[in-house]
């Protein structure tokens, strides 16, 4: 597991990370979300030992990262945002090179290299030079290089940028398998659907501070974003609109024929609205529900779109 206690990091006057704390449990995928410049990369760079925090402590499987740097480094795998591979080397040579830095015995290294290549589905192209690979295949090798030394913790920094659907799904499958095998994973991305699919817990960071953390339901509660029911009808008279407002005060009308209702309980609220509309004799044309999703939660909490 990973425990971060009030770490801060400044670059000159810019406070990139401001006293953040969170925990990631063993075998959990933890989504780390934030707009550009929010402090995600700085946090990951601190976790990956590339940067030292100005203050605060980090524990990797109960070992202090600063005090046991080498031991912690052996437990951490990092998948960098860039495709950090040697283009002129083959996939196998790259995997062997990066894995070899962790001091694995030669036989074990070769065995793990083949396992990693098979896991990312590129064992059959192991002898091909990386420069002949597609962007998605390079990303998969980028991942393979990071798991070769069998780390218990994996840091993934936007691992699917510029990746085709096939490779993206392959990467998801690998990550899910690693999680199922007990690996603890921190995952940063700009794609909210990836977080919704993969992550057990999420932290939203902005301006160097964590705005909220928890699972999707918890974040929804924190952000106070509700599910929205939208009903299209014939044109509503002022009298009908008043009747609906009297019965359901949280209703609004985005057009003379569109009723929008922020729901506390979507099932109960839908029944009540249907009753009022039916009683007033108005014909319903369509009904649509919009669940509180991560995008709206993120927007509510940070005031920004994730790609801002």
């Amino acid at each position: 597991m990973i425990r971060i206690e009030e770490i801060s990091k400044s670059f000159g006057d810019n406070k990139a990370v401001d006293s953040i704390s969170f925990e990631v449990n063993t075998g959990e995928i933890f989504g780390f979300l934030g707009p550009n410049g929010a402090g995600k990369s700085t946090t990951l760079n601190i976790l990956s030992t590339l940067l030292k925090p100005d203050k605060g402590r980090i524990f990797i499987n109960d070992q202090d990262l600063q005090e046991h740097k080498r031991a912690c480094q052996l437990q951490i795998g990092v998948v960098p945002q860039e495709i950090s591979l040697y283009a002129d080397l083959s996939a196998l040579d790259n995997v062997l090179f990066w894995g070899g830095l962790y001091g694995m015995p030669k036989a074990r290294l070769k065995e793990r290299a083949m396992q990693a290549l098979e896991m990312v589905g590129l064992a059959d192209r192991k002898k091909d030079s990386i420069k002949t690979y597609s962007g998605g295949m390079k990303r998969r090798i980028n991942l393979a290089c990071s798991i070769l030394h069998d780390p218990s913790i994996l840091l993934l920094d936007e691992p699917t940028v510029g990746v085709d659907i096939q490779s993206r799904n392959h990467i998801f499958e690998v990550i899910e398998k690693l999680r199922d095998d007990g690996m603890t994973i921190i995952y940063t991305t700009h794609y909210l659907d990836e977080v919704e699919r993969l992550c057990d817990n999420i932290a939203i960071i902005d301006g160097g501070k964590i705005k909220a953390q928890g699972d999707l339901e918890t974040l929804g509660k924190i952000s106070k974003i509700k599910d929205v029911l939208t009903v299209q009808t014939d044109t509503l008279s002022e009298q009908v609109r008043n009747a609906i407002r009297d019965s359901l005060p949280s209703c609004s009308f985005s057009s003379p024929a569109t009723i929008e209702l922020e729901c506390t309980n979507i099932a109960d609220d839908t029944c009540r609205l249907m009753d009022v509309v039916r009683e007033s004799g108005v014909r319903i044309q369509s009904i649509d529900t919009r669940k509180a999703d991560l995008e709206s939660i993120f927007l509510k909490l940070t005031g920004k779109n994730l790609r801002d």
Partner: peptide, 13 residues
């Protein structure tokens, strides 16, 4: 520039 130096520094060297 291509990120391999960072990756080298993540490792225990």
């Amino acid at each position: 520039e291509n990120g391999t130096l960072s990756r080298l520094l993540y490792s225990p060297i």
